[in-house]
Structures are given as C-alpha cells and as structure tokens.
Amino acid sequence: MDYSYPIDLDWSTDEIVTVVSFFECIEKAYENGIDKSELMNQYRLFKQIVPGKSQEKKVCDEFEEVSGYSTYRTIKKAKELSEGLKVKMP
C-alpha cells in the first residue's frame, strides 16, 4: 500500500482510527476476503463518524481514487450475502 487514507482534519484521533479501520476492512475484502459481520460492524462505526450521504460519497470516492477499491460495491455485495459468509471482491 503506497497511498494515504482520506481523513477530515476535524475528526478526533479515535474517529480517524475508526475510519482507517473501515478502509482496512475494504482492503481485506479485495485482498483475502473478510467476514460479513466484521465488515458491517466497521461500516456501522464509520457511519457514526460520516453520517451524511454526500460526505460518505466524498470520502469513499477519495479512497477509491487512491486505492482502486470501491467501498460502495463492497458494502452492496455484503448486504446481499447471508450472515456468516465472507465478502470477497474480485
């Protein structure tokens, strides 16, 4: 990984850690797969920090631009899967 995560300078250290943890889960989905429950739990925590759709889109688009990983497609796929399954992106 040779890119930086998009962060908002108004976020606290704990909030930054939570957002980075969410993006790490997205990376896991693409690289090795991740349990749906772990991913969705991190997404819920992420949404507490980035509750608005427009801010979520902005931050996630910035992440996709630097990483090539789509948070939108990953979460969409996770929502379609049954509990207990792994989310594995192509």
Rank of each mutant, 00 (worst) to 15 (best):
T13A: 11
I7L: 07
S21F: 11
S82R: 07
S21E: 13
S21M: 12
V66M: 03
I49R: 02
V87I: 11
A78C: 07
E56H: 12
I26K: 01
Y69F: 15
S21A: 14
D8A: 03
D2Q: 08
C25K: 13
P51Y: 04
F22A: 02
F23Y: 15
Q48K: 13
K57L: 13
L9K: 02
Q42D: 10
K88Q: 14
Q48M: 12
K88W: 09
E64R: 15
N32C: 11
D2K: 11
D35Y: 09
V19H: 02
S12T: 15
V50H: 01
V87H: 02
T71A: 14
Q55M: 13
K57S: 14
G68C: 08
F46Y: 15
Q48P: 00
Y43H: 11
C25T: 13
G68L: 10
Q48H: 06
T71C: 15
D14Y: 11
F22M: 06
K86W: 06
E64F: 09
S67G: 06
S4D: 13
V50T: 14
Y43A: 08
I75K: 01
P90L: 05
L9F: 01
C60T: 15
I16N: 01
E27D: 10
L81P: 03
L81A: 14
D35M: 13
S54P: 00
Y5A: 03
D61T: 13
K58W: 09
Y30G: 10
K53H: 07
L85N: 11
G33Y: 05
K28V: 07
Y3I: 04
R73C: 01
G84W: 08
I75N: 01
G84F: 08
L9R: 01
P90T: 12
I75G: 00
R44H: 04
K47C: 11
E64S: 10
F23S: 06
G52S: 11
E15Q: 12
L81G: 12
P6M: 08
K36V: 05
R44M: 05
M1P: 08
L39P: 03
I34P: 00
R73S: 06
I49W: 05
C60M: 15
E15L: 02
T74C: 05
S37Y: 07
K36S: 02
S21L: 11
C60H: 09
Y5R: 06
V50F: 07
C25P: 01
I75Q: 02
G68V: 09
F63H: 10
F46H: 03
L39R: 05
K76Y: 12
V50G: 00
V20A: 08
Q42H: 13
E83H: 02
D8N: 07
L45V: 03
Y3E: 04
I34F: 01
E65M: 01
N41L: 09
F46Q: 03
S4Q: 13
E80N: 11
K79Y: 09
F22T: 03
Q48E: 13
F22R: 02
M89V: 01
E80K: 15
C60V: 12
Y72F: 14
K53T: 08
E31F: 14
P51S: 09
L81M: 15
C60W: 04
F63K: 08
V19N: 05
K28S: 14
E65W: 02
K86Q: 09
V50D: 02
E15A: 10
L85F: 04
